[in-house]
Structures are given as structure tokens and as C-alpha cells.
Amino acid sequence: MATGQINSNATEAWAGKVSPFSASYGKLAMWFFLLSDALTFGGFLASLGFARHYYNGEWPIGEEVFHSFPFLSGHFPLMYVAFMTFVLIISSVTMVLAVEAGHRKDQKNVVKWLFATVLGGALFLGSQAWEWSHFIHGSEFGKVLLQDGSWAVSQSEGHGTDAKLTALKVVEAPTQGGTYKLGEVITGQQAENLYAERLSASADNIVKGADLQGNEYGPQAYSNYFFFITGFHGLHVLSGVILNIIILLNAIAGVYQKRGHYEMVEKVGLYWHFVDLVWVFVFTFFYLI
């Protein structure tokens, strides 16, 4: 039935049953929810920008923190995050293809593309779990507290027992009266001696990885924002995958074919695209800038 036909009867229009937006209640409700959720994420990211500007030079740089790739040793700045971003974009594409198949009532293709979307979501969640684990465990040597109260981050080569400290870079230094200057780099044997000396003085002088009490990458706020923003987004991905599985099972069972339309796929699709949309912003504001 065309919308024009519904609107033709003014009495009926005033009696309800007509949407001023020519969209179903379910779809409008999803848009309202997404609007509010987008403001929540907008708030997080604006707050991140607030902290980012406050700490300015001390704030860690994305490509220096995230440069590892599963199963490979070496330096791959931002590559894994880029891979995750790509996975989420592609799963958004498979979702929009499922919606398109739904508009043609093509059950076989809806099932195919929804299945691909579920796989993409699961791959993203697995990647995020790996990244969290890597972020929490940290690097081989961590961050060192020096005698004058300044902090230096370590750079190293190799892994496990072969790991070798190559340099210490001062990232925090007292404004006056300190021995070390901000940005100073200590290399070679000198760095190894200094590290060994600080370690033997107290194990508390070395901070490895990240938790809610401290982190080796930079200011405390950095790991807090990492856990909170990527965690809240990850929770959205998780619930999105669960919703996708539910509508996949319904599509296989022919529920929507019997109903005569696949609007449920479209509504869940809106949520799934939103998850991708948020990640596009998180990728830029957390990792790139």
C-alpha cells in the first residue's frame, strides 16, 4: 500500500495509524535510541578531547602505543587497529546487503549476508580481546621511575628471554631541579645500567602494562579512557552480535518470510551501522589524533 493512500483520508490521519515521518514506530524508536546513544558517545569523546588537551605533550601517541600484530614480532604501527576498523566497515557492508536482500524478500541471501555479519562482529570482538590483553600486559620493560622523580618509557628489541633494552625516553620530568630533561633519550649500555640500578633499588620503580591504578604509556587518564571508551563500544558490539544472531535464526526459520517483510533486519541493521559509525570516531580520536 502506498503512503499516499493512507494520507488521503484526513479523518483516518487525525485518528492515528499514520506516521508523520512515513516510517514505522519500531524504526523511529530505534532512531530515537541511536540519537541518545550517539550523544553518550559524543560526550565520552568530547571528554577525551578535554583530557587530551590538558595533558597535551604527555599524552601518548597512538602509533607508539599500538604497534603490535598477533603472531608477528616487529613494529607495525596502527596496522592492527586499521585491520579492526576494516573488519567493522566490511561487516557493516554485509549488513546493508542483508537489508537490501530483505527488501527483495530474498531469504537465502538475507541468511548468507547476516551470517557474514555475525562472523565479522565475532572477529572484531576477538581482536579487541587480543588488544586489551596486549594493552594490559604491556611491553617487555615498561616505564621506569628515575632518581629525580621523572619517568622514562622503554624501547626494546626481541621478545621473552631474548628481549633487549635499547633506549629509555624521558616522558615526564620535574619542571625545575631535575637531572633529566623532558624528551631526553638514553641509549645502549648506559640505559641498561640505569634500568638495572632502578630495578634493584625497588621493584616499584618499574610499571608494566596498564590497569586502573597505573599504566606505562602515559597519564593515568589515558588507560582509563582506553578501557572506558573501547570497553563501552565493545559492549555495543557484543549486544549487536547477539541481536544479529537472533535475527539470523529468525530468518533461517522463515519468520520474516511468513510476516511478508524483513523490517526487523533493517532495524537491527541500523543498530549495527551505528556501532560501525561510533568506531569510525573512536579510531580517529583515540588512535589517530
Binding site: 500500500m1 493512507i6 492515528g16 495509524k17 514505522s24 514506530y25 527483495r104 524478500k105 517483510h261
Partner: peptide, 24 residues
């Protein structure tokens, strides 16, 4: 009586094979 009659808007979004190709 709170539902749009006959799922009108959901059906309105449907399209044929030809249109589908363009969308894809």
C-alpha cells in the same frame, strides 16, 4: 489499533530485482 495498518511502511520499502541491482 496502535499499529500502522498492514505494515504499510515496511512493505513500502520493498523493491524488485532491477532496483536491487542499482542499490547494490
Amino acid at each position: 489499533d496502535d499499529l500502522i495498518v498492514n505494515d504499510a511502511y515496511a512493505l513500502h520499502a520493498q523493491h524488485g530485482e532491477e532496483e536491487g541491482k542499482k542499490v547494490r
